[in-house]
Simulated assay, not measured.
Amino acid sequence: MIQPISKNALLLALVALVCVAILGLVNQLAQPKIAEQQLASKLAILNEVLPQSSANAALLADCILVTNPPLLGRPTPQSVYRLRSGDSVSAFVVETTAPDGYSGNIDLIVAIQPDGTVLGSRVLNHQETPGLGDKIERRRSSWIESFSNKQITGENESAWAVKKDGGQFDQFTGATITPRAVVDAIYKVGLLVRQHPELASRPANCGANQ
């Protein structure tokens, strides 16, 4: 005869198995919706830095992973999307990191033409001081838009600095380190696309939904 304790153990095990099965089924059913939301979110961000409605599924698929710590700020691969016009690349959309923010890494996305002209940029993630460094966010100020239509040539490095350092970009009152880090990170994206034309011809390798 099975003891009451054994019966309870079997019952608990059965309940646990049923719960695991239900959670697995719910997760499986939710995956397509999650993927759809992630895709929409990614396209919304890309459309903020590109000409209207340029971002689509084809752009997400035409993506390469690039590892270049000196120019992209991380030792791990960063995504580079390629917007094409016919057979040529009209713009790159580069995920990059400013590793020298006041409170750590500042993750950015930058749309830039092959000649180094910035189309747009946005901050994706940061931990800068609220009320000071967080002015790099578009919802806090229009400062991040000051890079649009400015060109990075490799010979104009001195202009790609905050005004306190002799450059053309405003700093924030009481917070110079944060904008300085962002300016430098965007400048290095320009160097990346100008110094590495092979980015346009490398096979896509980001994988689905990158």
Rank of each mutant, 00 (worst) to 15 (best):
M1W: 08
I5F: 10
I5A: 15
L10C: 13
L10M: 15
L11R: 12
V15L: 15
A16V: 08
L29R: 12
L29V: 13
K33R: 10
E36P: 11
Q37V: 07
Q38Y: 11
A40N: 15
L43K: 04
A44K: 12
N47K: 09
N47A: 11
E48T: 09
L50K: 01
N56E: 14
A58I: 13
L59P: 01
L60F: 05
I64W: 04
V66S: 02
P69H: 06
L72A: 03
P75R: 05
V80E: 02
L83Y: 02
D87T: 12
V89K: 03
G101L: 00
Y102Q: 03
S103P: 03
L108E: 01
V110S: 01
A111Y: 03
Q113S: 15
R122T: 05
H126W: 01
G131F: 05
G131S: 10
G133M: 05
D134P: 10
R139M: 12
W143A: 02
F147C: 04
F147W: 02
K150N: 11
K150L: 11
Q151H: 10
I152W: 00
T153P: 05
T153R: 06
E157G: 02
S158G: 07
W160K: 01
K164A: 09
D165R: 02
D170C: 08
D170A: 14
I177Q: 01
I177S: 02
V183F: 01
V183A: 00
K188M: 06
V189R: 00
G190Q: 06
Q195M: 11
H196Y: 08
A200P: 04
A204Q: 09
N205C: 10
C206L: 15
Q210N: 14
